[in-house]
């Protein structure tokens, strides 16, 4: 019988309601995320109808990087608002555990796929993105249908990444405590 899980922290609750909107450099792609659980993707149908697959992939990678930057900024803004003071990331690893956790985070590779694997998003570490789109996708799907499938791939990738950082956090911070307590 697993232990009852603890509830969300105030920061987690606030973050789950935080909306971050991002537009790609050429303005043809927009991403709206709410916390870690909701993602809306819009691709300009006119542009999508004629864009080469390679260009579409590149633009999606660029917007994914911008999403990462905007979400990081929004996360610390949310935290600062809750704390009533400026909270920002530390410049250097604060302890061997921080260094190890960051190293483990950097090794997390999360993959999300949709449309029988023909749309795939890979996130390595926290900010390295790869987008793969089979050329048949742009022939078979119109822009709204593509957005729906790409959203599936992105959310799957986010879920896998969440599992990855939680595993890393557990190994670095929690496992030693449980081992010391003789539980593991």
């Amino acid at each position: 019988m697993p232990e009852p899980r603890a509830g969300q922290t105030p920061l987690e609750r606030a973050w789950s309601d935080t909306t971050v909107e991002t537009e790609s450099p050429n303005g043809r792609v927009r991403v709206t995320m709410v916390g870690d659980h909701e993602l809306r993707l819009w691709v300009d149908p006119t542009w999508y109808a004629t864009v080469p697959v390679r260009t579409l992939q590149d633009e999606l990678v660029k917007v994914a990087r911008l999403v990462y930057v905007n979400r990081t900024r929004a996360y610390y803004d949310t935290w600062s608002r809750l704390a009533g003071r400026l909270v920002r990331p530390s410049r250097t690893p604060a302890s061997p555990e921080t260094e190890e956790y960051q190293r483990r985070l950097d090794e997390v590779v999360a993959r999300g796929e949709a449309y029988d694997g023909r749309i795939a998003l890979v996130l390595s570490g926290t900010s390295r993105f790869t987008v793969s789109i089979d050329p048949s996708v742009v022939r078979d799907l119109d822009a709204p249908a593509f957005c729906a499938r790409a959203r599936e791939a992105a959310l799957a990738c986010l879920r896998e990444h969440e599992e990855g950082w939680q595993r890393a956090h557990f190994d670095v911070y929690t496992r030693p405590r449980l081992e010391r307590a003789g539980v593991l």
Binding site: P2, E3, R5, A6, Q166, R167, F170, T174, R177, L178
Partner: peptide, 16 residues
């Protein structure tokens, strides 16, 4: 501490 010990699949079924 309880949150950490129970959240990430930890605990090993040791009980609340």
């Amino acid at each position: 501490a309880y949150r950490e010990l129970t959240r990430f699949g930890a605990g090993g079924g040791g009980g609340a």
